[in-house]
């Protein structure tokens, strides 16, 4: 088996903006605009960026919860956006998604045990007789108790609900899981429990994670490599140590400097970005970041920088690097 599990090539996802009586398309929101990367089996890639940068859309398009606009997503060498529905369905259990909000992603009227077991039965991976046993096993792995099987979602705390979300993905024995902000809604002490659970599961089951987050300190902890997104594009990607020690793109630098460090004795040079993120429906010309970039040159306003390799496995899209 090849070492590469996922290959994303020039992936684009545009959402049409419709207006008027006839709902004509008057433009596009370029949520994901030509992103490319590869992931090796067993690694964790962090996808970071601010709200609206397209990181969740990227995650969803990669496992074909959304249809792509252009580009390819190769999962174990097969383009999942070209598979016929039957083939795709067979592949579904292998690619799972854990959602950010553990409150709205569970049906309040379905018992937790049934919610976890539903997909396994649906995919015919297990008979109805065995299902309870299987769910109990997964509950145990995720740090929940057997008596939780017959409870409803409202009886659980945020951290427990996130465990349920993870259990739901895990029961299908996936190889690849997209984790969409799995710990952002949780308190610090609970967050640490979930992060450790995710690390343990990854080691035990050789899982590959795409970890979507805006919290750089969590990303540094859990990810082996990191991609930084801005307005639909990846502006920089490198291994974790490289990116945190030697950030090259001005946006990455600003993002890193903006994270508050819990040590009152440290005073840092902080790079302040001016203004807000421009609308992805109408991104700036040239380099999309030039409107907020502290070091923008004339060239940045007109010419789109090429995303290129500047060091070993270190890619960046900036004219000034």
């Amino acid at each position: 088996m090849s070492d590469v599990i996922l290959e994303v090539k020039d992936l684009k996802k545009y959402f049409p903006i419709r207006s008027g009586v006839f709902q004509r398309t008057i433009g596009h929101v370029k949520a994901v605009d030509q992103i490319s990367f590869t992931m090796k089996r067993g690694e964790t890639l962090g996808l970071v960026g601010e709200s609206g940068c397209g990181k969740s859309t990227a995650g969803r398009t990669i496992i074909r919860l959304y249809d792509k606009t252009e580009g390819h997503v190769l999962y174990n060498g097969r383009d999942i956006h070209q598979l016929p529905p039957k083939e795709l369905r067979k592949l579904r259990p292998k690619m799972q998604y854990v959602f950010q909000d553990p409150f709205s992603s569970l049906n309040p009227r379905v018992k937790v045990g049934e919610a976890i077991g539903e997909a396994v039965v649906d995919h015919g991976l297990c008979s109805k007789a065995e299902i309870r046993e299987k769910v109990l096993e997964v509950l145990n792995i995720c740090g929940l108790a057997p008596y939780h099987y017959d409870r409803y979602p409202h009886e659980f705390s945020g951290g427990q609900r996130q465990r349920i979300g993870i259990a739901r993905a895990l029961i299908l024995q996936p190889d690849f899981i997209v984790l969409d902000e799995p710990v952002s809604a949780l308190d610090v002490s609970i967050q640490a429990q979930i992060i450790n659970l995710l690390s343990d599961l990854q080691q035990q089951q050789n899982l590959t994670y795409l970890f979507i987050s805006h919290d750089l300190s969590v990303v540094e902890h859990i990810c082996s490599s990191v991609a930084v997104m801005y307005l639909g594009s990846i502006v920089e990607m490198a291994s974790r140590d490289e990116l945190f020690k030697n950030p090259l793109h001005p946006y990455t630098k600003a993002l890193l400097s903006a994270v508050p460090i819990p040590d009152p004795t440290i005073t840092r040079e902080r790079i302040f970005l001016k203004g807000d993120i421009p609308s992805p429906a109408n991104p700036p010309q040239g380099c999309k970041f030039h409107t907020r970039c502290p070091v923008a040159a004339d060239r940045c306003r007109t010419e789109v920088p090429v995303y290129r390799e500047v060091g070993p496995e270190h890619h960046v899209a900036c004219h000034l690097v």
Partner: peptide
């Protein structure tokens, strides 16, 4: 329990 940039540990305290 809080991960801190630049002070990575193998495992977080919980």
């Amino acid at each position: 329990a809080k991960p801190v940039i630049g002070q990575r540990k193998e495992r977080l305290f919980t």
